[in-house]
Structure formats: structure tokens, C-alpha cells
């Protein structure tokens, strides 16, 4: 998984260049349009040890706005929203890298520039004592928790 940070403005409808910490970058348009998390669904994905997506379920495809073939093989930071602080992901990778479960509230970026909030849990997939990837499940968070997380992240970005 590559970390990234916003190099441009992240205002509503603004074109923004997202730069990954490996030096690569991409242009995105960030809007203030929120897509509500569908009732009863779980968004499920798996990555390889480097964070590249190997599997995702239909809810992942629907919420991300991408086609399945645009998702598989991409780094999970495809969904990273510029409002998310790098510190949150650093903690995630430190936690799962240590073989433990991580959970937290995440604002994800859609292909169309909109966003959706999730409560995410990530576990390392251990086979014969070796981490062969990670499974992530995202579920619907409460509005209270979203507002708390958004306030916290504004202080960290």
C-alpha cells in the first residue's frame, strides 16, 4: 500500500492532484456529494501483502463507482480521500503489520469525486504462519461517529 497526500486544493468540485508517497500521482475531482451506505450491506475486499486489490464484492464495486476490471490489481489507496490524514493509514498498517486487527472510520473517495463513509475493519490473512494478504470489511457507521471522525481528521490533515 502506498501512502499519498493531496498536493492541490480539496474544495468541493475542485480538480486535485493526489501524490502517492512513491512519487506517482493522479488527477481527481473532489466533490461534496455523499453516497449513503446501503442498508444491510458489507463492503468486502482482499489485497495481497503489498496492498494491491485481489478480490472485491459487488457492494465494493457499487460504492466505489469503478468497474470491477478497474479495481482488481489496483492499490487499495485508489479509494483514499484527500480529507483522510496519513496518520490514520500509518496506524492501520502498523497494526495489521503487527498481526493485529485494525478498525476505524474512513472517508473513501469515489471515482466520480464524491465520497462515502465506512467503519472499516482490516485483518491480516495468516496461512502457515505467513501473512499472505489482508481482508477488509466495511460497514455502515452511525452519523454520530462520522461527525466525530471528520472533526478529528480535520485536525490531522
Amino acid at each position: 500500500m502506498h501512502d499519498m497526500k493531496a498536493a492541490g486544493g480539496a474544495d468541493s468540485g475542485n480538480a486535485t492532484i493526489l501524490t502517492y508517497h512513491d512519487g506517482s500521482s493522479r488527477h481527481v475531482v473532489v466533490t461534496e456529494i455523499e453516497t449513503p451506505f446501503p442498508e444491510g450491506r458489507l463492503i468486502v475486499s482482499r489485497t495481497d501483502p503489498a496492498g494491491f486489490i485481489t478480490h472485491c464484492n459487488p457492494a465494493f464495486v457499487e460504492m466505489s463507482g469503478y468497474r470491477l476490471d478497474e479495481i482488481i490489481g489496483q492499490p487499495h489507496c485508489l479509494l483514499r480521500h484527500p480529507d483522510m490524514p496519513a496518520a490514520a493509514f500509518k496506524e492501520l498498517w502498523q497494526t495489521v503489520g503487527g498481526g493485529k486487527k485494525w478498525h476505524g472510520y474512513v472517508k473513501n473517495l469515489r471515482k466520480d469525486g464524491g465520497y462515502y463513509w465506512v467503519y472499516a475493519t482490516v485483518v491480516p490473512n495468516v496461512r502457515d504462519g505467513r501473512v499472505v494478504g489482508y481482508t477488509s470489511v466495511r460497514r455502515k457507521p452511525s452519523r454520530t461517529r462520522i461527525e466525530e471522525a471528520a472533526a478529528l481528521y480535520r485536525t490531522l490533515v
Binding site: 468486502v44 486487527k101 478498525h103 475493519t121 490473512n125 481482508t135 470489511v137
Partner: peptide
């Protein structure tokens, strides 16, 4: 089986 177990792990005791 491993995938379902991982999935249950992510959901339990979050």
C-alpha cells in the same frame, strides 16, 4: 474456508 474465517474474524469483537 480460510476466507470465511477471516471474514468472521473481521466482524467479531470489532
Amino acid at each position: 474456508m480460510e476466507f470465511m474465517i477471516d471474514l468472521i474474524d473481521t466482524l467479531a469483537e470489532a
